Amino acid sequence: MCGRMAVTMPPDAMAQLFAAAPDNVMPQLPNYNVCPTNDVPIVTGDGQGGRRLRAMRWGFIPRWYKKLNGGPLLINARAETLAEKPAFRDAARTRRGLVPATGFYEWTKAADEGRDPWYIERTDGGVLALAAVWQDWQAPEGEVLSTCAIVTTCANASMQAIHHRMPVILEPDAWALWLGEQGKGAATLMTAAPDDLLQWHRVDRAVNSNRASGSALIQPLASDAR
């Protein structure tokens, strides 16, 4: 599962890291509370052998939707069924991307029946390259909207303490294969990250609101705070 994330790296730094040409219009960053339907940065192929850094709506819209809310909000795509689901199978073959994130959030149920948020990041402090699929959706009125979903898989042993799913996280040596630059075989990349790749800490429940913002959202919660 991946239902909220933080994206703080400047677009020019993302473009350099992924060797991608940036579009002129990018999401406003930093954003410590990226929510479904927000725009996210995503690296894709540019159709000419290069890479493009662009903005897409987080929430994949199948071609047959007649309106934005014409069906379930598809923010995640399960790796196990990615190639079979009608919504995703074409994108799985030809429209794969990488979403650069600083971290993401998951929730556990608390003793008071509330939801405790946890912020999850790389142990080395680096960027998380989240596997994604994308789709250009055309509204009946003619407007074209680029949309994407994060690919998820079963959580690794350590992550299962927080949630049973996790995003597929790709290391630099896998980026070219996932983006379709090295032929076939991308399906082999859709596995859980090593147990020691991620670390996490509990954060304030303020992030439970999609209106919350600011770097304080990712700060560790003091042991006596609630």
Rank of each mutant, 00 (worst) to 15 (best):
T44K: 15
F88R: 00
E121M: 03
Q135P: 00
Q138E: 05
A161L: 14
D204A: 13
D136Y: 12
A225E: 06
W58A: 06
W64M: 03
L73S: 07
A176P: 06
Q219G: 02
P30T: 07
A149C: 02
T147H: 08
R52S: 15
Q135K: 03
G71N: 13
P41A: 11
V43R: 13
G180D: 12
T152I: 09
D196P: 11
M9L: 05
D196L: 08
D204V: 02
V7L: 11
I75Y: 04
L198E: 10
D12R: 07
A83C: 00
I150Q: 01
K66R: 14
Q135C: 03
G47N: 14
L53H: 12
G70D: 14
L53N: 12
F60G: 10
A101S: 06
A225Y: 02
R57S: 11
D224L: 00
I218F: 05
R205Q: 12
D136T: 02
R63L: 03
L189V: 02
A193M: 04
F18N: 12
P11Q: 01
E80G: 04
H163N: 08
P140T: 02
T153S: 11
R4L: 03
W58L: 06
W64V: 01
A155I: 12
L217T: 07
W134V: 01
M190C: 05
A139P: 05
Q48Y: 14
R202F: 04
A110G: 07
A212H: 04
A187H: 02
F88Y: 04
Q48H: 15
A186M: 03
D196F: 08
T108S: 13
V7E: 12
V25R: 09
L29A: 13
S158P: 13
K85M: 09
T37M: 07
I42H: 14
R52T: 11
V43N: 14
A212D: 08
A187E: 10
T81Q: 09
P72S: 14
P140A: 07
E171G: 10
T123S: 10
T191F: 05
P140N: 07
A192Y: 03
L221K: 08
E113Q: 14
A110P: 04
